[in-house]
């Protein structure tokens, strides 16, 4: 049940595309900045493999300039 947040910097020309596509992604929540070119992206996936898949998708997105992982919880202590 990984919950991870990132700061995602878009390529200037692909900002809108990135925002739209990430918002549509089932496991992502995107909060764009109002006055800067950066998004907060939060992923909430059911297991590690899915999390890996989502992260790979993010990293390889053509509109992404840079991805910085900020905070995460991977193991649920009760698991």
């Amino acid at each position: 049940m990984p919950v991870i947040s990132y700061l995602a910097y878009p390529e200037k020309q692909h900002r809108a595309t990135l925002l739209a596509e990430l918002s549509a992604h089932p496991y992502c929540e995107v909060i764009p900045a109002e006055n800067a070119d950066v998004f907060i992206v939060v992923t909430d996936t059911p297991d590690r493999q899915t999390d890996e898949t989502v992260r790979t998708y993010l990293e390889q997105h053509h509109g992404l300039l840079c991805l910085a992982m900020i905070h995460g919880q991977v193991e649920d202590p009760q698991e």
């Binding site: 700061l7 900045a33 109002e34 006055n35 907060i40 939060v42 910085a68 900020i70 905070h71």
Partner: peptide, 28 residues
């Protein structure tokens, strides 16, 4: 708990962003 963790994650990202980009504000 899920929501709490998500808010925590978002909060950390907000803090990090405000350190990197002074004055940044998010629509949230």
């Amino acid at each position: 708990r899920r929501e709490f963790l998500k808010n925590l994650a978002i909060g950390s990202a907000l803090t990090a962003a405000s350190q990197l980009i002074p004055g940044v504000s998010f629509a949230w």
